[in-house]
Design a binder for these strands. Structure first.
Lengths: 217, 217
DNA sequence: TCCTTACAGTCAGGTTCTCGCCAGGTCCCT
DNA sequence: AGGGACCTGGCGAGAACCTGACTGTAAGGA
C-alpha cells in the first residue's frame, strides 16, 4: 500500500496509474488534511508527499504523520531543487527526495529501495505460525511448509482474519483471479491440500463451518 | 562507522575528513578488493561506493558485499547521471544514488536518512561461499568458480537475500540492462548454467519455487 | 586476414508439478 | 431415510521448468 499526497490532479492520476502498474495499491489524497485522515486509516507501507500542498507544507505533513505514529518511509516530490530545500526535507524526517520533472522509472526503483528496508510485520504472534511472503511458505518455528501460489493466497485470506469465519465466495474471490470459473468443489479441494500439508505440524488450524465457510483457528 | 570505497585520492580524503566532521568514523578503501576485506572486518553501518572503480564495477561490489552478509545500506556515487545507470544501481541493491558533483551537505543528510532506518547489525555467516567482484568468481574455501558477467549479477542478486524467494522479474531486472528483451527461457538457462558450475562443490544452492522464482540457501 | 575462444540468447524436446475437476464416500441436519 | 454439504483420492491438461544443443557476435591472437 502506497500513500500519495499531491494536489495537482493530472500528476496525481499519473502516479496512481503507475503505482497500480507496479503492483502497488495507491491511497491518494489531494490535501494534507485528507492525507492525515486517509493514511491513519489505511496505514501505507511507504508514502509519496508533494512539498507544495495547498493547505500545508509537505514537510509539516510529514512531521504530523510521524506524530500520529505513522512511521512509513517518505519520498518527497517537489519542483524546488535548491540544496536548502532538500536538506529541510530530510531534516523533517524524509527518507528520499526527488525533484520535478522526474521519470516514473526512478520513482519505481526508489520506492522499491525504501520498501526493501522496511522491516516485515512485527512478530506479534511469538512462536505461532506466520505466513512469510518472502519465502512463500508458512513458517512455524524453524520448520517451514512450502505453498503453491494459489494455496498461499487462500491461506493468506484465511489467516488475515483469525477466529472469524470467512465465507466461501470471499475465499474464492481472494484466491482466484477476478471472474474465474471455479467449481464449488475446487475450494474444498484446496482446503484439503493445505490441511494435509499442515498435518505434520499438528495444529488443528482450519475448521469448517457448514453452510458458511472456513475459519483459521 | 561509514565504509567508503573511492579510487580518486582527493575525493577520498575529502569524504574521510567530512565524515569525521559529522562524527562518523570512516573506513576507507581504494579498490573493490580492499573494500571487501576491510568492510568484512569492520562492519560499517552504511557504505558509500563509487561506481567507477579500477578493479570492478561498484554495483558488482555491492552485490558481493551483500552476498557475504553485509547488509548495511549503500549510497552510490558516480559521475554518470543517466537514468539507466541510476536504475541499475538500485536494482543491484543500492539504497540511494548521488551524481558528481555533489554537495557534502547532501551526502550528510542522505547518510543520516539511511542510518535512521537501519536496525542493529545482523548475524553473519562465516566460512560460506564468497563472491569476488574483481575476478567475477565465486570463491568457496580454496576453490573458485569463474562466472560470466551475467551469471555474476544473477547469482549476486540471489545470494543477496538468502533463504528468501527472489521473483523472476526481480532477477531479470538485476541481471540484465533496463528494458532488455529477455525471453522467459533465458533466465532458466542461466540458472541452469550456474547450477552446473556449482555442482562439483555440492552445495545444494539454488532451489526453484514454481510460479514465483528462485531461492539461495 | 583468418582462426579461436567465450559469452549471450534462443530453440525444441522432455520432465515435473500445479491446477481444476470428477466420482464416490462420509457426515450432519431435517 | 433422504438430501445437501463437505471430504477424499486420484486423474488429465497444460503450464512451468529443465536440459542439451545451436547460432550470432565480439574480442583476441597467430
Amino acid at each position: 500500500m502506497v500513500g500519495v499526497c499531491e494536489d495537482e490532479p493530472a500528476l496525481r492520476s499519473v502516479l496512481a496509474r503507475a503505482l497500480r502498474a507496479m503492483d502497488h495499491e495507491p491511497v491518494v489524497a489531494a490535501t494534507a488534511a485528507e492525507a492525515l485522515r486517509a493514511f491513519a486509516k489505511q496505514r501505507p507501507d511507504v508514502m509519496i508527499l508533494d512539498i507544495g500542498l495547498p493547505d500545508a507544507d509537505g514537510r509539516d505533513l510529514c512531521l504530523a504523520l510521524r506524530a500520529t505514529g505513522i512511521d512509513a518511509p517518505v519520498l518527497f516530490l517537489t519542483a524546488r531543487d535548491g540544496l536548502h530545500d532538500k536538506i529541510a526535507g530530510f531534516e523533517a524526517g524524509g527518507d528520499d527526495y526527488l525533484t520535478k520533472p522526474f521519470e516514473l522509472d526512478e520513482v519505481r526503483v526508489r520506492l522499491d529501495a525504501l520498501l526493501r528496508r522496511t522491516p516485515g510485520p512485527a512478530a506479534d504472534t511469538p512462536g505461532g505460525p506466520v505466513l512469510d511472503p518472502a519465502r512463500h511458505a508458512l513458517v512455524v518455528g524453524h520448520t517451514e511448509v512450502a505453498l503453491t501460489p494459489t494455496e498461499f493466497r487462500l491461506l493468506g485470506r484465511l489467516m488475515a482474519e483469525p477466529a472469524t469465519v470467512v465465507r466461501r465466495h470471499t475465499l474464492v474471490a481472494a484466491a482466484w483471479p477476478h471472474g474465474a470459473m471455479v467449481s464449488d468443489n475446487t475450494l474444498d479441494s484446496y482446503v484439503r491440500r493445505i490441511r494435509k500439508k499442515l498435518e505434520p505440524l499438528d495444529l488443528s488450524a482450519i475448521s469448517t463451518v457448514r453452510g458458511v465457510g472456513y475459519r483459521w483457528r
